[in-house]
Design a protein around this nucleic acid. Sequence first.
DNA 1: GTTGAAAGGCTTACTTT
DNA 2: AAAGTAAGCCTTTCAAC
Lengths: 168, 168
Amino acid sequence: MEEIDRAIVAALTADGRLSYTDLAERVGLSVSAVHQRVRRLEQRGVIKGYAARVSFEAMELPLTAFVAIRPFDPSQPDDAPERLAHLPEIDSCYSVAGEDFYLLLVRVASPADLERVLQAIRTAANVTTRTTVVLSTAYEGRPPKISAGPPTRGRGRAVGEGTGSTAG
Amino acid sequence: MEEIDRAIVAALTADGRLSYTDLAERVGLSVSAVHQRVRRLEQRGVIKGYAARVSFEAMELPLTAFVAIRPFDPSQPDDAPERLAHLPEIDSCYSVAGEDFYLLLVRVASPADLERVLQAIRTAANVTTRTTVVLSTAYEGRPPKISAGPPTRGRGRAVGEGTGSTAG
DNA sequence: GTTGAAAGGCTTACTTT
DNA sequence: AAAGTAAGCCTTTCAAC
């Protein structure tokens, strides 16, 4: 991916409602060129969509927890993600290496709600749960490192890049 | 928070670039009324901003890991989040209950990068790390449960319904 | 792939109810 | 708080380099 595409993605990650006019000014291209690049980024799946970032506290979901799950019977078919997808309190579901099978990010309104969701998780996926309650969120969903060049691969140098030293 | 505000937040969570015209049609209000409500939601901090959702694979960050950290010396001042904030590979930083002090979500390009970031985390915050590698992401950042009413029975207080004056 | 221009649509503010 | 109107800017498409 080119440097300009990276700049576009970085800008839209920071502000998803940037106008094409502002975007064009930032990356130093015409409005039409920027528009075409954004459309291609969307079609290629680099940009998957746009979303408003909401305050979970304001949305009455002040309690966040990580729930590591492990099946009661490891010989059973492992389809926990699908069996849990119907629970809207589950924000994310990761298949992980280590002692546990999956790691869930859960957002609820209260400890009572957390208890209810944990019970629902256990019964829906036939798993044991190990829960880590989040006390506070220092930061979350920070924009990824999108700078001038590729982080590790040596496939090509970006425009204006000097040496091939690793980015810090 | 009112039902219409919930509908607005839900719609903008699913599609952050919805026009006010479309939004007005969805919630059954005029464009002006919707515009005013969105501005108030933004000013109250319910809507914190807008962001493009990007594919981390496409951004050359295919490796995700959770890093639980614990200080070498628990008597030292605990300012790990600030000491780690300069590392762009850290997506999120949660203060957690349990055996560990913080849980980090890290996104990197390769195992070599992960090693480098882990070393940087240890030296920057003077902590030990316990890393859980993500094998696959079933789903991530799902829209929170924003339906008609409060999630738990009765007791929940809506934002902005509090007593007394509100800043802004 | 980039640029420039034009038509249509959207945002925003103001006014009214 | 909600609706209507108008001005200005943006989005989107089309043609040209």
